[in-house]
Design a protein around this nucleic acid. Structure first.
Lengths: 122, 122
DNA sequence: CTATCTATATGCATTTTACATATATAAGGA
DNA sequence: TCCTTATATATGTAAAATGCATATAGATAG
């Protein structure tokens, strides 16, 4: 049992995290550490996802051939593994976006229902 | 490796399923089998969630005291375990709704970004 | 007398999650 | 020089969730 056992653990956004990563890579090939910052645009933070989880997702995507990687030893800092989206990855991103579009409609419905029920309470 | 390994498995909506269940119970105390039907309003189907998963979620909620149950042997059919939302459950629902409200904003942002990128492609 | 509907529940292999930890390069400051 | 911080990737692991199959049983319809 932890603080967020029942609900609202800030890490529980995985099914939104994965399409966000694919989208960011579709716009710009990138390495994990940089993605960690770019993900903030979609509500993620320094701690979510934790680096280990992000790297594992990237490796999973690579094993499924949604992305390919290449090492880049720049002038400064440690070597970076740069990931590029494949055609397969673009296709998967498209599917994922469709799913999110459908889901948003239903989430909105739940939120509307909740609001309505609160108003009628008085 | 299964059909939906990379994306879009219709069951991967768990973080939307759980608040949907709490909301439905907040409106009307109910048993699992009936919830299975009421959940269709929020995009779920005969197969998602599978009954086993729903019952397990209900037991989990009960162990965390978000709901309480009572057996009801009606005139027809097997006995039903009726679940009622507790004060704790109402509180958790409220938190979950707030989280969904925030998440929707970020999902919309991703969808908007994706659409914009598609338009600029031509 | 049997198929279907209603209703709840368990078994289990695989995957995901959260969090901690390891490793290494390089830059900046005291 | 030494220490800290930033950059960068990765693994270990216990606990939880997931997906799918299966078990059980009362009631109803043909």
């Amino acid at each position: 049992m932890s603080k967020y056992d029942s609900c609202c653990h800030p890490g529980k956004r995985e099914r939104f995290l994965e399409p966000s990563i694919l989208y960011l890579l579709s716009q710009q090939a990138d390495h994990g550490y940089s993605l960690l910052n770019r993900l903030r645009r979609y509500g993620f933070s320094e701690t979510v996802p934790d680096p280990g989880s992000l790297y594992r997702i990237l490796r999973k995507f690579e094993s499924r051939q949604l992305i390919v990687s290449a090492w880049e030893s720049g002038e400064s800092g440690p070597a970076k593994r740069i990931y590029t989206l494949t055609d397969e990855g673009f296709h998967t991103l498209k599917q994922w976006i469709s799913m999110l579009e459908q889901n948003v409609v239903f989430i909105q419905r739940l939120l509307d229902d909740y609001r309505t029920s609160r108003e009628q309470e008085t």
